[in-house]
């Protein structure tokens, strides 16, 4: 039982790390630009598809990653320059409508280019197989690599936000935008940077999961809602909040699914427990979100009502 718990904990952390990568960009864009980007999930999807394409073309996972990342940034910047820029001073609802439209367009575009069937990305040789941890459990190396990469990004983000000039601007921008522009900072440039950066994080997450998850046109939509849940639980604009919330959602979802029914069986008879478990399991993260928001209406680390 302890082994299982440990495994599930690792799995929960890995799911959380993934959600963090997607949610980090979302919360930055949201907090700093006050921009709701429904199309953020497509960046994740495009990252995975580009990764698949370039990995296949070069025959090498690492080369593929190396080419896919700049490609995602270019794609994200193109979206920023041609569409999002025109939406920053619009209402949230206009942003929702336009970016929802964009999501439809890109998703269909992906279907037209790559087809509806899932496509394949191999696990790199170096990271295949599994490894024995603490002498008691086997764990896939690639998943450990995802956790490591995600943690590295999180640390990098922390250093950048708290100990660099751009980080200072970001923090200032999130809490008080007029001040930033008063400082004479080129807001256009800052916004484009933030957006490209968020796109890269989401694309990176997509590229990372390509060897683990199904790369198909539905992948952007399914991750988007989870990412929004993370952003809102963490508090809009807070990268730290997104990190905590992502791990929380990942761990609660993974552990709850396994241990929820076991706990329920202690309280009620097995068939009722399994029925209740089946009903409750998919609701878990929504119950978590409702609970957090009922107690802290601006999320765990939210500074203001958005």
């Amino acid at each position: 039982m302890f082994n299982l718990f440990l495994l599930q904990l690792l799995n929960g952390v890995q799911l959380g790390i993934l959600l963090f990568l997607v949610a980090a960009g979302l919360t930055l864009i949201f907090g700093i630009m006050d921009f709701i980007n429904i199309a953020h999930g497509v960046l994740y999807m495009v990252g995975a598809y580009l990764m698949a394409t370039f990995a296949a073309a070069t025959g090498n996972f690492w080369l593929g990653l190396l080419v896919a990342m700049p490609a995602v940034v270019v794609f994200g910047l193109a979206l920023e320059v041609f569409l999002f820029r025109r939406l920053y001073d619009r209402s949230h609802l206009d942003q929702v409508l336009a970016t929802f439209g964009l999501m439809l367009i890109v998703t269909e575009g992906v279907r037209m280019i790559w087809g509806s069937s899932p496509i394949f990305v191999p696990v790199p040789e170096l990271l295949s197989g599994s490894i024995r941890l603490l002498g008691i459990i086997n764990y896939p190396v690639y998943r450990l690599a995802i956790i490591a990469a995600g943690l590295a990004v999180a640390v990098g983000l922390y250093v950048m936000i708290n100990h660099s000039r751009i980080g200072m601007l970001l923090r200032a921008g999130a809490s008080n935008r007029p001040v930033v522009s008063a400082l004479g900072v080129n807001i256009t440039w800052l916004f484009a940077f933030v957006f490209a950066f968020g796109a890269m994080l989401a694309g990176f997450a997509g590229a990372l999961v390509a060897p683990v998850l199904s790369v198909d046109p539905g992948m952007g939509g399914s991750v988007l809602i989870l990412a929004f849940v993370v952003v809102v639980i963490g508090g809009i604009g807070s990268v730290k909040g997104a990190f905590v919330a992502a791990l929380l959602v990942g761990v609660v979802d993974t552990l709850g699914r396994t241990f929820g029914p076991i706990l329920l069986q202690m309280a009620m008879d097995p068939s009722a427990a399994s029925q209740t478990g089946r009903t409750l399991a998919p609701m878990l993260i929504y119950i978590l979100m409702a609970l957090v928001l009922a107690i802290r209406p601006s999320g765990l680390f939210g500074r203001r009502a958005a």
Binding site: F30, I36, H92, I225, F228, V229, V232, I236, T279, P282, M283, Y286, I287, M289, A290, L293, A294, P297, S298, G299, G302, A305, A306
Partner: peptide, 22 residues
């Protein structure tokens, strides 16, 4: 209604999803 803005959007989503899964 304790929440505002996007938080309201997401908490109503949560309740809607609970009804859906029920």
């Amino acid at each position: 209604l304790r929440t505002r803005g996007v938080y309201f959007i997401m908490i109503t989503l949560a309740f809607g999803q609970m009804a859906y899964f029920f």
